[in-house]
Write a protein that binds this DNA or RNA. Structure first.
Length: 798
DNA sequence: TTAGGGCTATAC
DNA sequence: GTATAGCCCTAA
């Protein structure tokens, strides 16, 4: 059944209006969706013409209902002009004209034009101006018949039957969803008996989401938009998206007209998805009774998932616990997935949403939370979308399985349809008996010859065989589980990195206090406050950030304690780590400087953020945690970036610069043989790494001092300007001594590229020129600085 | 992208 | 404490 065809034949063009309004409710409107609808619907010009009229009518109704704004929307006015209306006319007149049915020729003109018409402005306009219940007003007014034009408008708009049915069925996003669902449940029998059209309308209504979910991009977008409306209604976007997708998958596979539209309206009040399922079931049941269509598509022979779905729908008493229990009990029961999974998934997603909604729906005032929220949001979004895909896959598998079983039953013996393969010990593939592999899933009837599998049979750890369907479903489950764990780990990593930022800020605050005694405390605080939220964290950890930060810092410092195998109470001020750190700091820090007692953490974080596997700053624990961290170019410490393979798995932002001409640069050096043997031998190109490795010296954990990372490491620079919770703190690179070879190539480069007056030296070119020699972390600025130093030491002739 | 000034860590 | 090397920031 093609919903749009029905839609068109139904002739209820008001539905178009509702569609438009529906779309208009979305935050982001993709006009291509409407265009898709337009283009795929037959006899569209007429409908479009009606839509045109109704748009204008809507505009008029807007006026009637008090909207004083008469913004002249280009698209709308253009359309209006096409059908001979002018905005300046009075509402009554316009309405009258609408009802007078513009001539067919006018409509034909308007139709093609409308196809090119960008509905977006209109939608935006409607969204901006329409009262939330404007459509309801529209309907009510038409149905009440109090307006002089109501009667004819009612007839013209196709609301007659709706009126007679006594219910409004579409578009009442603000209405009580429960009442709505109840109304909807009442609709079919009465309406349908009066006129075929209403029934069509019902199907149209039901089919709309179905069309949205049919798989192509446009319809997918529309599904997303649909969910956008739900989001607007404080619904759980993902849960609904998933549920809708899930159901749509069933629909697309089985051509089941599950009224997701009605579901969407139900959902706002249905806190529990099972309740929704129950109501869906009600719809479904009604429809089945009315049309008898679904029965024909739900063969009783082995299509247990379909029947299960139906049962689930009809059984409004099912509750979450039951289902979850069943799932827990039957976690590996793929055969039951078709009925259980949609609910399960929705439940899971709902849980996710519980976490997620605040970050989406509320504005976090502090940047930290925003950043964290962003990270988590993106992570969850990614995970959820991926989950959706796999949930759909899982459902697809179930559907395919049921189809497969059905088709096999149809191809095989009739008895199979009733008794199943398992009971008869027949292969589901070849319908022959023999030594069969039975699927371990308790309710999966599938049995198959090993040879019929088409691939080598595999058994799980317990030696159980799972049919391909169940195996795939199981794999998806495991994958999703793993993703969930990864997501959690990512959050923890985010918290960990955030900790680095916190420590940094605290360290900065401490330094400001200790190094700027001239600054009054208030001034210092003020400065810090101006630069970010350092001050507030320093001053009060109980503020909204502080609590979380302290929690994170506690976690981190607990690692210290665990590592030291000492049960030291962790208190902000009395942390021994802090004391040790302070003692080892050459800079005299007052006792107050350890206010936050997180200095060790800071130092460790600093090293953590500089963490490359190839460069250690002394703390292996941190290093392990930062495997995937790759600081920005300026934040890179001396790390041999010229060896890209080492960067392989890292998301290095500092790309390996392929030498412009390696041989040229090195030839320059070799040609003149400028490298003293001693220099070359004692200071090979690798020397920077060696120099850095000074810091790598193993530090015994048994000694207190060993917690103090070498000062010759990356440190945070004092922020001079805004410090807005960077997920990656600013880092100071390690010093990388220049090798003689580097100096040589630098000299060559300068001689080669510098202009006559040496006013401007293209350091970037020189860097590329000598990239085979220069240490990978060098920048053009480094070259410049080095050249400056070299020139300081000796005249330019050097 | 470059130049210049300033900052920081280290060596002495 | 000072000198120095290397790094960072900012203006042009």
């Amino acid at each position: 059944m093609d919903g749009l065809a029905d839609f068109s034949s139904a002739g209820s063009s008001l539905l178009w209006l509702w569609i438009i309004e529906y779309l208009a409710s979305f935050k982001e409107v993709d006009t291509s969706i409407l265009h898709d609808l337009i283009e795929t619907a037959p006899e569209i010009p007429d409908d479009l013409a009606k839509v045109t009229r109704e748009m204008v009518a809507l505009r008029c109704l807007e006026d009637l209902f008090g909207s004083s704004d008469k913004v002249n929307n280009d698209g709308l006015s253009c359309t209006e002009n096409k059908v001979g209306f002018a905005l300046s006319e009075s509402c009554e007149d316009v309405l009258q004209q609408i009802l007078q049915e513009t001539s067919a020729s006018d409509l034909n003109i308007a139709g093609p034009e409308l196809l090119k018409w960008d509905v977006h402005p209109f939608i935006m306009h409607k969204r901006a101006l329409m009262p939330k219940c404007a459509l309801q007003h529209l309907k009510d007014t038409i149905l009440e018949g109090t307006h002089p034009l109501a009667a004819s408008l009612k007839e013209s708009s196709g609301l007659t039957c709706v009126s007679e049915c006594g219910t409004a069925r579409v578009g009442d996003l603000d209405h009580n969803a429960l009442a709505m669902s109840e109304k909807e449940n009442l609709l079919p029998s009465t309406c349908e008996n009066r006129d075929g059209q209403p029934r069509d309308n019902l199907h149209i209504r039901n089919m709309l989401p179905f069309k949205r979910s049919r798989g192509d991009m446009a319809t997918r977008d529309m599904a997303a938009h649909t969910n956008g409306v739900q989001e607007k209604c404080d619904l759980n976007y993902n849960a609904k998206k998933h549920k809708q997708d899930a159901i749509s998958n069933h629909q697309s596979a089985d051509q089941i007209s599950v009224p997701t539209c009605g579901k969407e309206m139900v959902e706002p009040l249905s806190g529990r998805d099972v309740a929704v399922a129950g109501r869906e079931g009600s719809h479904f049941s009604n429809q089945s009774q009315d049309a008898g269509l679904e029965e024909s598509q739900f063969p009783d022979d082995g299509c247990d998932n379909c029947n299960d779905l139906r049962r689930l729908g009809q059984n409004g008493d099912v509750n979450d616990d039951q289902i979850q229990h069943n799932q827990a009990e039957d976690g590996h029961n793929a055969a039951r997935l078709p009925r259980a999974e949609p609910v399960q998934n929705a439940t899971v997603d709902e849980a996710n949403i519980t976490e997620r909604v605040p970050s989406v729906g509320t504005q976090h005032e502090d940047t930290e939370d925003e950043s964290r929220g962003e990270v988590e949001h993106s992570c969850e979004e990614e995970t959820l979308s991926d989950n959706d895909a796999y949930h759909n896959d899982r459902i697809d598998v179930a559907v395919k399985k049921s189809h497969f079983l059905s088709s096999q039953a149809a191809l095989g013996h009739d008895s199979l349809a009733t008794s199943g393969w398992t009971e008869q010990n027949l292969c589901v593939k070849c319908n022959k008996d023999g030594q069969l592999l039975s699927c371990s899933s308790s309710t999966c009837p599938l049995a198959v010859h090993e040879n019929c599998l088409g691939f080598p049979v595999k058994f799980d750890e317990k030696g159980n065989f799972h049919c391909p369907f169940c195996a795939y479903t199981l794999s998806i489950s495991e994958y999703l589980e793993a993703k969930k764990r990864a997501s959690v780990a990512r959050k923890e990593l985010a918290a960990f990195m955030q900790m680095g930022s916190v420590c940094h800020q605290m360290d900065l605050a401490n330094k400001l206090h200790s190094k700027d005694p001239g600054h009054s405390g208030s001034n210092g605080d003020k400065d810090i406050h101006e630069n970010g939220n350092v001050g507030e964290q320093e001053n009060n950890q109980e503020n909204q950030n502080g609590q979380h930060l302290r929690d994170v810092s506690d976690q981190l410092c607990q690692k210290h304690r665990a590592k030291k195998k000492k049960a030291e109470p962790l208190h902000d001020v009395s942390d021994p780590l802090c004391q040790r750190h302070s003692a080892n700091k050459k800079k005299a820090e007052t006792s107050a400087s350890c206010v936050n007692a997180n200095s060790p953490c800071r130092e460790e974080e600093a090293n953590a953020f500089s963490g490359r596997d190839c460069i250690s700053n002394g703390d292996k624990v941190v290093k392990e945690n930062m495997d995937n961290y790759c600081p920005s170019e300026r934040g890179l410490e001396g790390q041999p970036e010229r060896t890209p393979p080492e960067c392989g798995k890292l998301a290095c932002t500092n790309t390996y610069v392929e030498p412009m001409d390696d041989t040229e640069a090195e030839a320059e050096l070799q040609k003149e043989d400028v490298q003293p043997a001693s220099s070359e031998s004692s200071d090979p190109p690798e020397s920077p790494v060696i120099a850095l490795n000074i810091d790598e010296e193993e530090i015994s954990e048994s000694e207190d001092d060993k917690f103090i990372i070498s000062n010759y490491s990356i440190r945070f620079r004092r922020p001079k300007t805004h410090y807005t919770y960077p997920p990656i703190p600013q880092l100071r690179r390690k010093k990388v001594p220049w090798t003689a070879k580097e100096e040589e190539i630098l000299k060559k480069g300068v001689q080669k590229f510098a202009s006559v007056d040496d006013r401007i030296i293209p350091w970037k070119k020189i860097l590329e020129f000598g990239s085979s020699v220069f240490f990978g972390g060098r920048t053009a600025i480094d070259l410049k600085d080095k050249w400056r130093n070299m020139c300081k030491g000796s005249p330019r002739s050097k």
